[in-house]
Design a protein around this nucleic acid. Structure first.
Length: 300
RNA sequence: GGGGGUGUGGCAGAGCGGACUAAUGCACCAGACUGUAAAUCUGGCGGGAGGAAUCCCUUCGGUGGUUCAAAUCCAUCCGCCCCCA
C-alpha cells in the first residue's frame, strides 16, 4: 500500500493533465484535480476539462479517473479549505484502493493548503464583508494597521486581502501572528512542478484561447447564463468567461475579446510561475521529462 | 500638377513653447498573496552609475533657424496618407 502522494503542478497549458495521465497508467494512479475552475459544472470548454463525466465529480480521461471536477454549480462559493476537505477524502479513497493519488493542477493556494494546511480561521462572512467593503480603503487599511500591523504590511494596497485580514481579526479577536503557526507537511509527497519555455507557453496559450472561442465557448457561456446563473456569479469570474460576458454586453469587440482573454491568461500563467518559485519541497522538471517513480526509494 | 494632413519610445496613441524621458493602453520584466486564488494587488520599463535620494549621457523623421528655453514655432529636405486634377 502506497503512503505517498504525487503532486504535479505547472502553469496553465504546460501539459499537467497529460503528464498525470501517463503517470497514472505507468504506476496505477488516479488523478485528483487541483483546479479552482474545473470544479464548476457546465463550464467545460473554457476550463479545458478533459475526458468524460462518469459520475458526480469524477471524470474518466483515457481510462484514468479524475476526481474533484464538476462538483459545484456556477453560483456556489468555494474556497481553499473546502478544497482541502474534499481532496483529503479523495486521497484517502484512492489510497484505500491501493492506488497512487496524483494531485494535479495549477492552483497554488489550494496545493499549499492541502500540503501544509491552513490555520484555524473563520470562513467567509458575507455580512461582515459587505459592511467592510462599504468603507474606504484608507479607513480599512488604518484599522488593520492598528489591529494587525503584520497583516497590514503584507496586504498593503490590496482591498480584497485587507478585508479578509480584517474579517479574520474582527471575528477571532486574534492577529495573524497568534493565529498562524509553523506547519508541517500533512502528507508524504513528491511535488513535481513543470517548467516550460515561456515563449512556447505563451504561444500555446494564445492558440488555445483562440481554439476555445472557435469551438463553442461563447455558446457555452450563453447556455449557462440562460440557465439563470448571473453574470457576476463566482464561476463567471473565470478567464475567458468574464471576457465573453463583456463581449455579450457589447463592451468588447470580438477581436478585443480574444486579445484580452489571451492576455489575461498569459498574465495568469506568469503569476503561477512566480508563486511556485518560492514554494518549498518542489522538484522542478522540464515538460519533456519523464517521471520515474520506480527509481525512488519510497516506491520500491 | 494643385490643395490638405501627418511623421512621437517595441507597438498604439496623448502632448503642440518652459513642470517632457515625454500621459495612457498594449507588449515586456520583476514581485506580493493562509479560506474570492483563472481572484486580488504592487513595482519596473531609453542607456550608464548607485540600495536609495540622486547624478551623468541620449530621445519626439533629417537638417538648419527663431528663442533665455522647442517634441511643441519657422524654413527646408525626406517618408506616409487623403482629396481634386
Amino acid at each position: 500500500m502506497y503512503t505517498y502522494i504525487i503532486v504535479i503542478s505547472g502553469p496553465t497549458a504546460s501539459g499537467k493533465t497529460q503528464k498525470a495521465v501517463k503517470l497514472c497508467k505507468e504506476y496505477n494512479g488516479e488523478i485528483i484535480s487541483c483546479d479552482s475552475r474545473q470544479i464548476y459544472k457546465y463550464l467545460d470548454i473554457g476550463t479545458n476539462k478533459k475526458g468524460i463525466l462518469i459520475d458526480n465529480g469524477i471524470r474518466l480521461i483515457n481510462g484514468i479517473k479524475q476526481y474533484l471536477v464538476d462538483i459545484i454549480e456556477p453560483h456556489e462559493y468555494y474556497d481553499a479549505m473546502q478544497y482541502v476537505n474534499n481532496a483529503d477524502k479523495c486521497i484517502a479513497h484512492v489510497l484505500k484502493h491501493g492506488k497512487i493519488p496524483i494531485v494535479t493542477g495549477g492552483c497554488g493556494l489550494y496545493i499549499k493548503a492541502l500540503l501544509y494546511g491552513l490555520d484555524h480561521a473563520p470562513t467567509k462572512n458575507i455580512y461582515l464583508r459587505n459592511q467592510l467593503y462599504s468603507r474606504s480603503y484608507d479607513e480599512l487599511y488604518t484599522e488593520l494597521k492598528s489591529l494587525d500591523p503584520e497583516a497590514a504590511s503584507r496586504t498593503k494596497k490590496n482591498p480584497q486581502r485587507i478585508v479578509r485580514a480584517l474579517e479574520i481579526n474582527l471575528l477571532t479577536k486574534k492577529n495573524t501572528k497568534e493565529l498562524f503557526k509553523i506547519k508541517n507537511r500533512r502528507y508524504n509527497f513528491i511535488h513535481y512542478h513543470i517548467v516550460t519555455n515561456k515563449d512556447t507557453l505563451y504561444d500555446r496559450i494564445n492558440t488555445r484561447c483562440k481554439n476555445m472561442l472557435d469551438s463553442g465557448m461563447i455558446n457555452e457561456t450563453k447556455k449557462v447564463l440562460n440557465m439563470g446563473f448571473k453574470k457576476d456569479s463566482a464561476a463567471m469570474s473565470s478567464l475567458g468567461y468574464k471576457h465573453i460576458v463583456q463581449y455579450l454586453d457589447n463592451k468588447l469587440s470580438k477581436n478585443d475579446l480574444l486579445r484580452e482573454f489571451s492576455k489575461d491568461t498569459r498574465h495568469y500563467a506568469k503569476r503561477q510561475i512566480t508563486w511556485f518559485k518560492k514554494q518549498p519541497d518542489i522538484e522542478f522538471i522540464f515538460e519533456n521529462t519523464n517521471i520515474k517513480l520506480h527509481e525512488r526509494n519510497q516506491f520500491n
